[in-house]
Design a protein around this nucleic acid. Structure first.
Lengths: 255, 255
DNA sequence: AACAGTCGTTCCGGTGAGAGGAACAGTTCG
DNA sequence: CGAACTGTTCCTCTCACCGGAACGACTGTT
């Protein structure tokens, strides 16, 4: 184990387990958990036991698998309700969602990842419920919008340590190509996701600013499916609303 | 420290900190955290550092206080989205909320506590946003409804280890009185919360069953304010809808 | 300028909680 | 019946955690 100072390795390992339950509703067996997080079974056993005793995890009575406990759900719910940023973003996204009947995602950048903190689905996108709560930036509309508006030096360093793994056959895997695309984003004011993360899923994204610090904090996207809209259609119909929404959100979020 | 076997004390302590951030949107200082959770400052420092490095917590740039990080929000959001029970409950509660324009709470019992896993507010109750995600059962409409329909032996044991602390001057603090009230609940089919948790806040609650095991799993409540409805009015207007909603939820939730 | 009161941070020594390999028992599968 | 799972316990070793104390950096008070 690489030992960073001033941090609890035990806690960090324990959190990796909780993390696992954020990406899937399916239950896990003890060995599966141990395998996924890369910790030996005995330790995982102790951690999982701790979670269960406290109510964060519980065992499904039928399948005997470990799954999320009520306490995690309640805690998650409470965190969202109490979070200032979610409380500010929610009504604006809801309004846009209801008015234009479109799928909306809001992602916030932290470290080298973008985190999905709010989503409103449309009937066209429910088929694509691939729900990873944390993603790399380079294959998402929200992420590319955020990258495009980063400070040049920040972006340079990010791209340098980036590894471009293809999610689909349309994922951009060349750094030069990515940088050129990002330049086009700044000209246009919004980004594309042209089936780069999931086949059949397209999106346009716009950056979210903090007007106080003038720095990018994330992105917002409208999503649709290729059998519903072509990219050109989708762009023509919604891009102005998207940019408008992004500005509204940026205005109320004074991080 | 009392040492329970097969559990990680370090992880348990670390989770107490995360828990703290579920009950309030206010930031905390390191010493405040240490005080609240009852752990010495140095350990808390290590835990908090771990959380920050991983993005679960972050420091507010202005106030320098520790607050929830984006990762926690995204994880919470993901857990709720992925949770089967939330996904089942949500549409039913939303429908009732929109049709009757009333505040709805859904609580699930785990251990000796009831956890709020979904809420839709009305304009009458927003003033009361006291948001503790886990509560004792005896002063809530959801909790009392759940208690009333527990198996006799289970209830007896629960009441035995109960300590009835008054939350308001109307909170029931006598075990005999509580048991009598619960008996009346079973006759009526729903419970009251007559300003027993927060002054000015009233509610009626109905139990949620698992039809498979025939056991209580929680409760659902409609809430209002004393300056909007008297208890009699509120009961007359909404009790049938509440019981109806509780049955619907119980039907879809086959835990 | 000296003060008291915060804040987060570091240092350090003693110890016990956690690590983790191995073997366990209980089950489902074919 | 064995094979492949499951969760669980036992064991020893050691290192990561504990926690009191002292630190420097700020802030506001006198």
């Amino acid at each position: 184990m690489k030992s960073k100072d001033n941090a609890s390795e035990t806690l960090a390992k324990g959190l990796k387990i909780l993390d696992l339950f954020g990406v899937s509703d399916a239950g896990y067996t003890l060995n599966q958990i141990a395998g996924r997080v890369g910790i030996n079974k005995t330790s995982v056993y102790r951690y999982v036991n701790t979670y269960c005793e406290l109510g964060y995890l519980q065992r499904d009575e039928r399948t005997r698998l470990y799954k999320l406990g009520v306490r995690s759900l309640a805690l998650g719910h409470a965190m969202l309700e109490n979070s200032e940023i979610v409380r500010l973003v929610k009504p604006l996204v809801d309004e846009a969602h209801e008015r234009h009947n479109v799928h909306v995602d809001v992602g916030i950048v932290s470290g080298d990842a973008i985190y999905l903190i709010y989503r409103r689905e449309s009937k066209y996108t429910t088929a694509f419920r691939s729900f990873s709560y944390a993603s790399d930036l380079y294959y998402l509309a929200t992420g590319k919008a955020a990258m495009a508006y980063m400070e040049p030096e920040e972006l340079r360093q990010l791209v340098e340590r980036l590894e471009l793994h293809p999610k689909t056959d349309k994922t951009i895997t060349d750094k030069q190509e990515l940088l050129e695309e990002l330049r086009r984003v700044t000209e246009l004011g919004y980004s594309y996701n042209n089936e780069e993360s999931v086949p059949g899923l397209i999106a346009i994204g716009a950056p979210l600013y903090s007007l106080r610090t003038n720095k990018v904090i994330g992105g917002v996207s409208f999503d649709s499916a290729t059998d519903t809209h072509t990219m050109k259609e989708f762009e023509r119909l919604y891009s102005t609303y998207l940019v408008e929404l992004a500005k509204k959100i940026s205005a109320v979020v004074s991080l």
